[in-house]
């Protein structure tokens, strides 16, 4: 029972990271109808920025600064590589983002170097003891940070003029243009948001442990998450992220009971989950089916 609860808590912590990364994918997808494969590189860039800035500035200043800088980097990608391709097939643009991803990771790897780096987060592997339940602080922190960001995003899309414009543009781009919405600004903002979310998500993914250039693989888990949650659903990204995180950690907890599966089956859990979802509900659990009058 304790093991189950601990697995769930760990899963929520890990899943929060997935949720943040998946939100970036979904926001860009909704705004531009393109799946951005540059998210892993943006995440890595954000984490490296935090690891370099945390020394002089301290973690709490470094995190927002790095998120901001990553957002600027994402803006640059959007302006330089994606905007000129507006109107081209989404597939072409997706492949471009793939190229951008590789290019950025090569550059970022220079700043990782050969040393073991970490983000100097204040939690490390410390944990709280709640009765017999042991809860790692970093997982709680990741969950709370995600909750905060999700609430902020919700408020942004619900109540602000620009958030509303983004929802409208996601629904019908040309009609939004006709209302005077600047679709270019919507594209830019979506990329900036995705960049900042990736930076924060990556930072929490590596909180308490060290990282190297392979950290970008973590961001790929966002793909099963958005398939599970539905490509165009923000709540789906959040719930999908948490679900995938919990599933992964529960498999990690109990995989020793099924030794024939091997020792690392938890790593592939998200992808197995993705396959299952694709077979049963290809539009995901929360993907909006078209609103249509009958």
């Amino acid at each position: 029972m304790i093991a189950l609860l601990e697995g769930i808590v760990r899963g929520l912590g890990v899943g929060s990271v997935y949720a943040l990364l998946a939100l970036g994918f979904v926001i860009i997808y909704k705004a531009t109808r393109v799946i951005s494969f540059a998210q892993p590189a943006l995440m890595l860039a954000g984490v490296v920025l935090v690891s370099h800035l945390a020394g002089p500035l301290g973690f709490w200043v470094a995190l927002p600064v790095a998120a901001l800088l990553t957002a600027v980097l994402a803006l640059g990608i959007e302006r330089g590589a994606v905007r000129p391709m507006v109107g081209r097939p989404a597939f072409v643009v997706a492949i471009i983002t793939l190229g951008v991803d590789v290019a950025i990771r090569v550059v970022v790897n220079i700043f990782i170097g050969l040393d073991v780096r970490n983000v100097h987060d204040p939690w490390g592997l410390d944990s709280w003891q709640l009765g017999s339940l042991q809860v790692q602080q970093r997982h709680v922190a990741a969950f709370l940070a995600t909750a905060l960001l999700v609430a902020a995003l919700f408020a942004f899309f619900r109540f602000t003029r620009m958030g509303l414009a983004m929802r409208a543009a996601a629904d019908d781009q040309e009609a939004a243009l006709a209302q005077g919405v600047s679709v270019g600004a919507v594209f830019a903002l979506s990329w900036a948001l995705a960049g900042a979310l990736a930076a924060v998500g990556g930072t929490f993914a590596t909180a308490g442990v060290s990282f190297d250039g392979n950290l970008w693989l973590t961001a790929l888990v966002a793909l099963p998450v958005i398939i599970l949650g539905g490509l165009d659903s923000l709540p789906g990204a959040v719930l999908g992220g948490l679900a995938v995180g919990v599933a992964q950690e529960l498999v990690a907890t109990y995989q020793n009971d099924l030794p024939w599966l091997g020792g690392n089956v938890s790593v592939i859990t998200p992808y197995v989950l993705m396959l299952l979802v694709l077979l049963v509900r290809p539009y995901g659990l929360f993907g909006t089916r078209e609103v249509e009058r009958v």
Partner: peptide
């Protein structure tokens, strides 16, 4: 905007 509410449509 089919997925937005009537008032949100007007706000846009």
């Amino acid at each position: 905007f089919a997925e937005l509410s009537v008032e949100d449509n007007l706000r846009v």
